[in-house]
Simulated assay, not measured.
Amino acid sequence: MAYTEVTVGDLIKLLSACDRSAPVRQAMNPFFPMAHRLERVVQAVDETGQPVVYLAEGRNADTQLGHLPPEVAVALAWQAPVQAPPRRPRRIAGDQ
């Protein structure tokens, strides 16, 4: 299966539909989904001489924000939708 990377143009197009005042977060690790703050954008050259852009998290202790909201993990197909178990009728004290 061929993998296609997201380009800067693709990212700009995807972000153009978003609220411009919304903070940008990075979702990482599908097996233990966490949210991170982005701090920097760095352009470099890869080992083949092609330009590449890195989105980097910050170095502060509060850069990792905690668990990714479940609805985001589901939207990314990192987790299956989970439904609460059905409620059972409450028992009354003294009932058998």
Rank of each mutant, 00 (worst) to 15 (best):
D46R: 01
D46W: 03
D46P: 05
D46Q: 03
E47W: 01
E47I: 09
E47Q: 08
E47G: 10
T48D: 11
T48S: 10
T48M: 09
G49L: 07
G49E: 03
G49P: 02
G49M: 05
G49Y: 02
Q50L: 10
Q50H: 04
P51N: 01
P51T: 08
V52N: 03
V52G: 00
V52S: 08
V53Y: 00
V53A: 03
V53H: 00
V53D: 01
V53N: 00
Y54R: 14
Y54N: 15
Y54T: 08
Y54A: 14
Y54E: 14
Y54Q: 13
Y54F: 15
L55Y: 03
L55A: 04
A56P: 01
A56N: 03
A56V: 08
E57A: 09
E57F: 03
G58A: 05
G58N: 04
G58K: 05
G58E: 06
R59I: 04
R59M: 08
R59N: 12
N60M: 06
N60A: 15
N60K: 11
N60G: 12
N60V: 01
A61T: 07
A61Q: 05
A61C: 02
D62F: 03
D62S: 14
D62E: 11
D62Y: 07
T63W: 02
Q64P: 04
Q64T: 12
Q64A: 13
Q64G: 11
L65A: 06
L65F: 01
L65I: 11
L65R: 04
G66L: 09
G66W: 01
G66Y: 01
G66M: 07
G66N: 04
H67P: 07
H67K: 08
H67G: 11
P69T: 06
P69S: 09
P70F: 03
P70D: 14
P70K: 09
P70T: 02
E71T: 04
E71F: 14
E71C: 09
E71Y: 13
E71K: 15
V72F: 05
V72C: 07
A73R: 04
A73V: 06
A73Y: 05
A73E: 09
V74R: 02
V74W: 02
V74S: 07
A75T: 04
A75K: 08
L76A: 09
L76T: 09
L76G: 09
A77S: 14
A77G: 11
A77W: 00
W78E: 10
W78D: 12
Q79E: 15
Q79V: 07
A80N: 10
A80D: 11
A80W: 03
P81H: 09
P81I: 13
P81R: 12
V82C: 04
V82K: 10
V82Q: 14
V82P: 00
V82H: 06
Q83K: 12
Q83F: 08
Q83L: 13
A84R: 10
A84D: 12
A84N: 07
A84F: 05
P85N: 10
P85L: 15
P85M: 10
P86F: 04
P86A: 14
P86W: 02
P86I: 06
P86N: 05
P86E: 10
R87F: 01
R87E: 13
R88Q: 15
P89N: 13
P89A: 14
P89M: 11
P89E: 12
P89G: 09
P89S: 13
P89R: 13
R90T: 08
R91F: 06
I92H: 00
I92M: 05
I92S: 02
I92A: 09
A93M: 08
A93K: 05
A93N: 01
